[in-house]
Nucleic acid binder design. Structure first.
Lengths: 394, 394
DNA sequence: CCCTGTTAATATGACAGATGAACTAACCAT
DNA sequence: ATGGTTAGTTCATCTGTCATATTAACAGGG
């Protein structure tokens, strides 16, 4: 990375900067390069970052001392001294909890987002017992991995939490219409029980971060992550950060009213985008078309993939509604790419073209790249790692 | 400003930071404090910025040497040495050009956004002669103010320009459906003619910046600026910067399709928000209701203010449509505040409540503050100053 | 008129951190 | 062995902030 585009910090800032700031920034840079390019030598880090080899060595020394990274094998070059490869410390790991109305998963992942083990958590019927069950499952998972060291617990949840300046979470759910148990207490309860720092964030925000941390996006461009499940949530990544908005409530494109005469929505409004484009909408379409109750969404997807006419038509209707919403997002934010995560992503070869065609049917000054989340099935889990790293690493 | 909320630079960055970065940031901070609090002493700057007095003195020395600021009178305190007040250098000024489909204004402003003189520019009919007329007017304005020194020319235009990493402009208009002359060449033509740096930006972006630089907003919160004129443009300020999106096309909420069966729009789509909520829409409503051609929008506003039934009804319809769009923005981005700029702002006591009521008629997790632009009539001009400062000052 | 207290502003040395050049280490090919 | 090459470290220098000391400038009181 040549240093040509000199960094500009010309935003209006209210806090003064000390001379530790450059180290903070450069350390971040170096760590991220190790993360994304490991194994990599100090010399290559210097080349890639634009920093001097001496500076890189100092930063690497810090990261080694704090055990974020480890020295690995030595490389072999046609000429010259052999480089020492650096890797993320594989022993450090993160607990990832993906809370989902229909299915909650707990996993152990390492800092590079590799899935080490995972379990479905069966949540009890009684809303008051859900958190206890989660705490219990987490305890067992930690016990079963006593050889590893955990840096924290990341949770992606379908709802918006109040956030403060620091990107950490107040732990108080304010807007989670698709969850029926008292999710607001989960942060404090789990922190109390495990002693580990817990970072909670909205699924879509977390997946957006995940895409930037682990995916093909490089953090330099704008990205909107659209999470399609029971409802629709979006995470907006712009200018190198998640756009959180006042109280952390940015990204509720799902509750933009597209049709004033539309169906009532769980949020209390009617005709919201998610009433026509979510999994629930797909199932409703099926029920209307086939004139019988819809099966679970995964099953419905299977029907559509197998060529069942009612199944196909209902998924198509859903895709058209999705496309219209994506046009809204593309028009409003002109992101470089829009990434979709949800149950439909495994069937992207079917739904992707439909969604994209509908998005492009209207004029669009700049057409964003549209794609499913990188490794969609792990995206929500891995986003939890991104959350913890984003919060705790620096 | 106590240093308590330690600045976090934990975004994913690709450029390394040198140890000149803190100075850059602190210099910015000090300059902005002088700008917003002038006259102010070094001691107060230290208190207000959290920096040491010695550091402040060094930075002030730089700013004085570069003539950004000047030493003014001395203060008087009940006890102790008298402070030396610092002020922006009143001699430095900026040319501000507000290009507007119906009216183009050229002004001289100082760095604090004070309007020193201004002129309407009458644009010739022939599209090919417009830029020459503008260049001519600028030349005359500079000649008439030969005692002043100009730092640059800021232009706010109703359109989106291609932008690059540096927030400067490529000078090539790509999307300006409401301008009929070749605006894309304006930057290079004017730079060539005057030798001054020219910064061009979308009206809404510029006004958003202006609000942050000169208004009551402190740059710490998110803000969406909605510019209502022939069309509707929005400028999104989040995480301390304008959200520009790929190619600089973010903010086209005006072209989100709210009604698939709506009227055709200048962008080629139909049922865009701006087809129902812009000045043009207001005039169309009047023509429909009164069954006669609408007068110019300013006149229509006057009718409404004077109590003319058709005038009132048409403006009301426009306000309702505006409110619906603001609900969309509030839902999507949850900004701390939404600021409106345009011809309607002088009548805010009439239209404001209507717009806000409609915005709040639907559920909203977080209701943004809604207000007209600070000194709405000067907002577009002053935004040009913000553009130049944002671009050239540091 | 000269202390004393108080506040403003500058000077100075210590510390953090990036830089670049010099240096050492390790390897290969001849 | 030797020279060439690449990796990584050491060190002096520079920029910049910070804390403290010092000087400057004022008011009020004896």
């Amino acid at each position: 990375m040549p240093k040509s585009p000199a960094p500009r910090f010309s935003f209006i800032n209210k806090v003064s900067a000390s001379n530790k700031i450059p180290r903070q920034i450069n350390r971040n840079l170096i760590f991220n390069q190790i993360r994304t390019r490991q194994p990599i030598s100090r010399a290559d880090l210097a080349r890639v970052s634009g920093l001097q080899r001496s500076t890189v060595s100092l930063i690497v020394e810090d990261l080694l001392r704090e055990r974020w990274i480890v020295e690995g094998s030595m490389g072999r070059l046609p000429r010259g001294r052999r480089p020492t490869f650096l890797n993320l410390n594989g022993q450090r790991s993160v607990l990832a909890l993906d809370i989902h109305p229909s299915q909650t998963t707990l996993a152990v992942m390492d800092l590079s987002g590799k899935l080490l083990s995972h379990n479905l958590i069966v949540l009890p019927e009684d809303p008051q017992k859900v958190i206890a069950a989660i705490v219990d499952a987490i305890g067992k998972m930690i016990a079963a991995n006593s050889d590893r060291s955990f840096d924290g617990i990341g949770m992606s949840v379908p709802g918006r939490f109040g956030l403060q300046l620091k990107e950490s979470n107040l732990g108080k759910s304010i807007f989670a219409p698709n969850i029926s148990w008292p999710i607001g207490q989960i942060k404090s309860r789990v922190e109390e029980a495990t002693g580990l720092p817990v970072v909670v964030d909205n699924v879509a925000n977390a997946c957006a971060l995940s895409e930037v941390w682990f995916g093909e996006s490089d953090g330099m461009h704008d990205l909107v992550m659209v999470s399609v499940s029971e409802g629709i949530g979006t995470g907006i990544f712009a200018n190198g950060r998640i756009v959180r908005g006042e109280g952390g409530f940015a990204g509720e494109f799902g509750h933009v009213q597209l049709d004033p005469n539309g169906l009532p929505c769980s949020c209390g409004s009617r005709g919201c985008w998610e009433t026509v484009a979510s999994n629930r909408a797909g199932m409703r379409y099926y029920a209307e078309i086939a004139n019988k109750p819809s099966p679970a969404f995964e099953v419905l997807l299977g029907l559509a993939a197998a060529g069942d006419p009612a199944g196909k038509e209902s998924i198509e209707k859903m895709c058209i509604a999705l496309g219209r919403g994506l046009h809204m997002i593309a028009t409003a934010l002109a992101p470089t790419e829009i990434v979709v995560v949800g149950d439909i992503t495994p069937l992207w070869h079917l739904v992707g073209p439909l969604i994209e065609a509908e998005m492009r049917r209207r004029p669009l000054v700049k057409v964003p790249r549209l794609r499913p989340a990188h490794e969609g099935n792990k995206a929500r889990l891995r986003s939890a790692v991104a959350l913890v790293m984003n919060e705790n690493l620096l």
